Amino acid sequence: MSVAAPYVEVDGLRRVFDVSKPWLNRVIERAPRQSLKAVDGVAFSIARGETFALVGESGSGKSTVARMVVGLLPPSAGEVRISGISMTDPRQAAARRRLRARIQMIFQDPYASMNPRWRVGAIVAEPIRAFDLIQGEAAIRARVGALLELVGLHPDDARKYPHAFSGGQRQRIAIARALASEAEFLVGDEPTSALDVSVQAQILNLMRDLQDRLGLTYLFISHNLAVVRHMATRVGVMYLGRLVEVGGGREIFVRPRHPYTRMLLDAVPDLAHIGRSRVPVAGEIPNPIDPPPGCSFNPRCPLANARCRSEVPQLRDGVACHAAEEGRLPA
């Protein structure tokens, strides 16, 4: 029996930023050029209809990955393929243009991604006009009204401006705009982190409902593990630009194997484990311009040994950790 190819394939993705001082400063100060590896060798795949979540602390490279996946940022190396089409190969430029309508992004701050001088109807209709999907103003207005109803708003809301809505309602408008182009793949970059907890739950439930009804595929970026637990089919844990653990949503939360994943989970409040000893996430992410040798997590890891301080662990069997490979993880 043949196995269907993944809908999204990310292979060896890398992004390096030049953070050097201006040329004259470098000459006067005799300073070398400096680079920052925001993403270093990330690889994962997403099956059609599933939710793959990337989690990690701020500065781990999650949002940079998201922007490279949708084509907002060119990778320094590696490749992204969506529905079998390369997002970087110039020979597939025509196919990529046709694919664009099926890929949309939902940002953290919906208000910042909307033109405050446009009415909501024009905002939601923008992808329809840009991709020339529907002809005739009456048909476009009808489609906008249907989209607003789909996300729990009223068709009459099309006449209002974004400032008239709450944060949760604006995120519903952003989702309606993303669906206006008949998108199949949505990338949510912290789409609920700016909302109150009760409103977060409403938006997450809406996204899951839309996924079930429309067969959507999600790449979900978040630092909130409680949100990820609710949403994700599979989870990738990022640290300092690299994937350190990948696994099923339930597996990651029940049996985390990387010490960093364990620390992240220990920091999540859980009424079921009151009184249990916890290991807080100690320290901070090192300077990405001058990362530590070996495993980048070794300065914060209670299990680090000499090998961890000299050899970079590779992702094997879903985890990049020498302690896991050597069987040194505590039960």
Rank of each mutant, 00 (worst) to 15 (best):
L73Q: 11
A77Q: 00
V42I: 08
R14E: 13
A5P: 08
R67Q: 06
E79W: 10
G61V: 07
A4V: 12
N25Y: 12
E79Q: 10
R14P: 04
N25S: 12
A53Y: 13
G41M: 06
A4T: 12
A77H: 09
A66H: 01
A53F: 14
S20T: 03
R26P: 02
P22E: 01
R67V: 08
W23P: 07
P75I: 04
T51Q: 03
A5L: 14
R81S: 02
A43Q: 09
S20I: 02
R30Q: 03
L13D: 00
R30D: 01
V42Y: 01
V69D: 02
L24Y: 15
V80Q: 05
A77K: 00
V80N: 00
S35D: 10
V19W: 09
S76V: 02
Q34S: 15
I46C: 05
A77C: 08
G71W: 10
A47V: 12
L54V: 07
G12Y: 11
V80E: 03
D18K: 10
A77R: 03
S35L: 12
K37L: 14
L24R: 04
T64Y: 09
G71P: 06
Y7R: 13
R48E: 08
A38C: 02
K62R: 09
S20M: 05
A43M: 11
S60Y: 11
P22S: 06
V3E: 13
A38D: 00
S63T: 12
W23C: 08
V69C: 07
F17P: 05
P22Q: 01
F17H: 09
L73P: 01
G59P: 04
P6E: 01
S60F: 09
V8T: 08
A47E: 11
E79V: 07
S60L: 07
Y7C: 15
Q34P: 11
E50H: 11
R15D: 10
T51H: 10
E29H: 14
A47F: 14
A53C: 14
S76W: 10
E29D: 10
L73H: 06
S58G: 05
V80L: 09
F52E: 03
R26S: 00
T64F: 15
V55M: 08
L36M: 15
V70N: 10
